[in-house]
Design a protein around this nucleic acid. Structure first.
Length: 493
DNA sequence: AATGTCTGCCCC
DNA sequence: ATTCTGC
DNA sequence: GCAGAATGGGCAGACATT
């Protein structure tokens, strides 16, 4: 009853009825639960604490629980293991839990670094370099399902189905259902995206290995130009409908850079250089949807920047630098895996001067500052006005946040100031008179096609405040044509 | 049937 | 994603 | 040094409205 026609109205009715029955205090918490703002330990991390306390009476087996969940990210399963265990066996049982195709492993995350100097300070031995792709993280699982009695009856039904059908896709469906080979794809957040990328599933099935878990990045590929598609284009493949037609328009490949499990054995604790060695052996014959990402061994005194430049030139986002030793470390972000993005190069950062024309109320710890984010505008020289194109909500310390609020307080405007336009989705909580100029950095200038009327449709990817209240007049902010020039320059590279 | 508005254990 | 802050 | 909590653009989908 929570979806379909009129579902929003029905939900509203139910909520109103509930609120009616509750006391004001109860109502407060009820609303927080609905809004997902009640921090009551419903996160996985807190749940693991609960498991520890429930059996040990304290948090003493927290680390064992976290490791087990890392390689087998099914909180229900972890919970059942704890509940089925006796106190004296629980640690042993948790340590026994191993990676298993079909259940996602927490993705290892990557620490960012601001310069090559910082990189050379971090590592003492030689390292492995891999390209950094701008796409969707994807874990590819393949395994063989055990024989089940129900399979027999299933196959009979499917054979009958096939008789009356010559349709290719239905035949494919039939084969998949009869086959014991299973494939699943998971995103970084453990979302099942198997149905969205059939070319990757097909390739996984064609591979000779009976079971594996691969770590990869899905990126769209332009076969005509022989180069990567943009992140925005790749993202269009993350869809429920029209998968087959989009498969032709935006074909993707999974660039595979790690191997976590192979033919029944977990490799989570195997050293990175050995996992990659094995990956290269197994993926030596190239598939269509699953391809091997390049890995290069580099000694630290050699020219890492040269490889970095080569990757950037090819349209990649930068490089990943990995320590040779050490296991996969699910869910961990530390300096054993480091990313160097092309945006560390000041030449490749888009720096924009904007004028503040509004702000948004903050939430959580930002609510006390009276402000959570600000609205930035560039100058539209053709229309002689300020066009607001992008919000800025990071890069400000508590101190600066306080100062911004105190300054903006004096120039409030109860309506949109004259000479200001805004993309409607960006309409701020509070308008202010254009006065204060800020500097904003961004990794990329993006363009919304069909929205060119305001600010040329341009916006910023990963905007962050670099400087507040520059000693500049509002007339000196970046213009649309300057933004356009920056946009076209990046595109041509 | 087209357009508008909002959301997502969303992706980055 | 980026950035800042608290532990 | 790490995790957590603020915040960004933008996509497809789900409903609502016209």
């Amino acid at each position: 009853n929570t979806s379909g026609n009129g579902s929003i109205s029905r939900k509203n009715q139910v909520i109103l009825q509930c609120l009616d029955m509750l006391s004001p205090l109860e109502g407060k918490y009820f609303v927080r639960i609905i809004c997902g703002e009640l921090r009551l330990g419903l996160s996985v991390r807190s749940l693991l604490d609960v498991f520890s306390i429930s059996i040990m009476g304290d948090k003493s087996i927290k680390s064992e629980l976290e490791s087990a969940y890392g390689v087998c990210a099914d909180i229900g399963y972890i919970g059942s293991v704890v509940l089925d265990s006796k106190k004296e066996n629980v640690v042993k049982n948790l340590i026994t839990i191993s990676a298993q195709p079909g259940i996602p492993v927490l993705s290892r995350l990557v620490q960012r670094v601001g310069s090559f100097e910082e990189l050379s300070e971090r590592f003492k031995e030689s390292v492995i370099l891999q390209p950094k792709f701008d796409g969707l993280r994807c874990q590819i699982h393949k395994w063989e399902e055990e024989d089940e009695k129900s399979d027999i009856s299933k196959s009979i039904i499917w054979k009958q189905f096939k008789k009356g059908s010559t349709n290719d896709s239905q035949n494919l469906f039939e084969i998949n259902n009869n086959s014991k080979i299973q494939v699943k794809l998971f995103t970084r957040n453990l979302e099942d995206v198997t149905e969205m990328f059939p070319e990757i599933v097909d390739s996984a099935k064609k591979m000779k290995q009976t079971s594996f878990i691969l770590d990869s990045e899905i990126v769209g590929w332009d076969f005509k130009k022989g180069k990567f598609l943009s992140y925005q284009e790749t993202m269009q493949r993350r869809r429920k409908y029209s998968v087959q037609s989009m498969r032709e328009d935006i074909p993707v490949r999974a660039f595979t850079f790690d191997l976590l499990y192979l033919n029944g054995k977990s490799l989570i604790h195997t050293d990175t250089k050995d996992r990659i060695k094995q990956l290269e052996r197994e993926l030596s014959t190239t598939q269509e949807g699953i391809v091997l990402a390049e890995s290069k061994s580099f000694s630290l005194d050699s020219d890492i920047k040269e490889y970095f430049d080569k990757c950037v030139k090819e349209g990649l986002e930068g490089i990943i630098v990995k320590q040779e030793n050490g296991g996969y470390r699910p869910g961990i972000r530390n300096y054993e895996w480091i990313k160097v993005k092309k945006s560390i190069d000041k030449e490749l950062v888009d720096t924009v001067d904007m004028v503040v024309v509004g702000y948004y109320k903050g939430s959580g710890r930002r609510s006390s500052f009276g402000l959570g984010a600000i609205l930035g505008a560039i100058y539209n020289e053709k229309k002689d006005r300020f066009d607001a194109i992008c919000k800025i909500g990071t890069g400000m310390s508590d101190e600066i946040l306080t100062e911004i609020n105190s300054k903006l307080e004096n120039i409030l405007s109860d309506q949109k100031p004259k000479g200001v336009e805004v993309v409607d989705i960006l309409t701020p909580d509070v308008w202010v008179i254009p006065k204060y100029v800020i500097t904003v950095d961004a990794d990329e200038i993006t363009k919304r096609i069909g929205e060119e009327k305001i600010g040329g449709g341009y916006s910023l990817r990963f905007p962050r405040l670099i400087e507040w209240n520059r000693d500049k007049s509002a007339n000196d902010v970046t213009t649309i044509s300057e933004i356009e020039k920056m946009f076209l320059m990046r595109k041509s590279i």
